[in-house]
């Protein structure tokens, strides 16, 4: 089979990416629309972005969302990394099947079920709903995504490096922090970012598990969207898209550069320089 550009491959990629990106591009363009009617172009304007800054309810929601996302992504990364290590390195322990089941199930579990289940748990144990229940729920579903991302890196991991450190008398705890963690770090960082955006975006699980005083941005957007499309929502969405896109692009550039440096270092090491 010939590599490269056949007309079929080019067409399918072009159409596919047009389909994926056109709605987002239109949304961004119409956030700069001067007209209040979202679908009628009334000239370029940034007034909707300015009006966001004075919308206190929205700013409060954004602040709650960011705090929950930072806290839950960080804890989910720790728990998810531990879970990945447990899955890859100690696959066979009592209850291992249950464990891997609990890690993979949240990836596909319909959110309405997870949300309802967690809410009923919090009610059953009498935990006041709000910021903390929201955070606990986000940690739980996003740690499983972190586990899968880190696991895929651990599977291809060269264990002889760890074994060498252990043979030379390095304690396991230190071996982990000096050998294992630096090598799986790109996956851990990617896992953190995934957990962060999952938390930032979540609507369904948040709606179930939150309480008074902890309204997140997606919940706010959702309640406004139900009333209709407004340029103001387009503006918030554009900001969120810009944040996520910048983060993902920077991360991929950094990862690529590190990879190139690593390969160069390996070549130099082989040549004995």
């Amino acid at each position: 089979m010939r590599r490269g550009a056949s007309w079929f491959n080019v067409t399918s990629i072009t159409l596919g990416f047009a389909f994926l990106y056109l709605p987002i591009v239109l949304l961004v363009i119409y956030s700069f629309n001067a007209s209040k009617l979202v679908t009628v172009w009334g000239g370029f304007s940034t007034k909707w972005y300015v009006s966001l800054l004075t919308n206190q309810g929205l700013l409060d929601a954004a602040w709650v969302t960011i705090r929950v996302a930072l806290l839950s992504a960080t804890l989910a990364t720790v728990l998810g990394t531990l879970a990945a290590i447990a899955l890859v390195r100690f696959g066979r322990f009592p209850g291992g099947t249950l464990f891997s089941g609990m890690v993979y199930a949240p990836l596909v579990m319909p959110e309405v079920i997870t949300g309802l289940a967690m809410l009923l748990l919090f009610v059953a144990i009498g935990f006041a709903r709000g910021f903390w229940t929201l955070t606990l729920a986000h940690i739980t579903f996003s740690m499983c995504f972190v586990a899968v991302v880190v696991q895929s890196r651990l599977v291809t991991f060269d264990r002889s490096l760890e074994e060498a450190a252990l043979d030379l008398g390095c304690p396991p705890f230190r071996t982990f922090f000096t050998i294992t963690l630096p090598l799986i770090l790109p996956a851990v960082v990617a896992g953190w970012m995934l957990a962060f955006t999952l938390s930032l975006d979540d609507l369904v699980i948040s709606s179930f598990t939150t309480g008074p005083g902890a309204t997140t941005l997606p919940m706010k957007i959702y309640s406004q969207v139900r009333l209709g499309v407004t340029p103001e929502i387009n503006a918030i969405c554009t900001i969120l898209i810009a944040i996520v896109a910048t983060g993902v692009i920077i991360a991929s550039i950094v990862t690529k550069r590190r990879e190139v440096e690593r390969q160069r270092a390996e070549r130099l090491a082989i040549q004995g320089v």
């Binding site: 975006d201 609507l203 969207v225 969120l240 898209i241 996520v244 896109a245």
Partner: peptide, 20 residues
């Protein structure tokens, strides 16, 4: 990366984009 990027963007936002 171009496939992954919309996947990182909020589900709600992508559905909202279609309403318009």
């Amino acid at each position: 990366m171009l496939v992954i990027l919309p996947f990182w963007t909020s589900f709600l936002i992508r559905v909202y984009a279609w309403i318009g």
